[in-house]
Deep mutational scan, measured.
Amino acid sequence: GHYRIRINGREFEIRGISEEEIRHLEEALRNGADEKILKEIVDRLRG
Rank of each mutant, 00 (worst) to 15 (best):
F12Q: 01
I7S: 00
G47D: 09
E19A: 13
R6C: 15
R44A: 10
E26C: 11
L29C: 04
G16E: 05
Y3T: 02
L29N: 02
E40S: 13
G16P: 03
A33W: 12
A28E: 06
I14W: 02
I37G: 05
R46I: 15
I7W: 07
L45E: 02
I17P: 02
L45H: 06
I17R: 02
A33I: 13
I7L: 05
R6E: 06
R4E: 02
G1R: 06
G9L: 01
L38C: 06
D34S: 14
L25H: 00
L38N: 01
E26G: 03
E40C: 11
D43P: 03
D34N: 11
E13G: 01
E13C: 15
G47S: 10
V42E: 03
H2E: 06
E35G: 07
I41P: 00
A33V: 14
S18P: 04
R30Q: 09
E26H: 05
R23N: 09
A28L: 15
I17D: 02
R30V: 08
E27L: 14
G32T: 04
E11Y: 13
D34H: 13
G32R: 06
H2R: 09
I14K: 00
I22E: 03
I37L: 11
F12D: 00
L29H: 03
E19V: 12
R4S: 03
G47A: 13
L29V: 14
I22G: 04
K36E: 10
F12N: 00
R44Q: 11
E26Q: 08
D34L: 13
E26S: 05
R23G: 10
A28C: 09
K39W: 15
H2Q: 05
I14P: 00
Y3F: 15
E40P: 03
L29I: 14
R30K: 10
I14N: 00
E35M: 11
R46E: 09
E35V: 10
R4T: 09
I17Q: 02
E26P: 00
I37T: 14
E11R: 02
E11S: 05
L29R: 04
N31S: 12
F12L: 03
R10I: 15
E35A: 12
I41W: 13
I17N: 02
A33K: 07
G1H: 07
K36D: 10
H24I: 14
G16A: 05
I22M: 06
L29G: 02
E13V: 15
E11N: 04
K39I: 15
H24V: 14
G32H: 07
N31W: 10
L29A: 04
G47R: 10
R44K: 10
L25T: 01
A33Y: 07
I22Q: 04
I37Q: 11
A28H: 13
D34V: 15
E40D: 08
E11T: 10
S18I: 02
R44M: 09
L25F: 05
I7A: 00
E13S: 03
E19D: 13
R10D: 05
E26N: 06
E13W: 15
K39R: 14
R10V: 15
K39V: 13
E21D: 14
R6S: 06
L38K: 02
E40I: 13
G16I: 08
I37H: 07
I14F: 15
K36P: 04
E13L: 10
G1D: 10
R15N: 05
A33R: 06
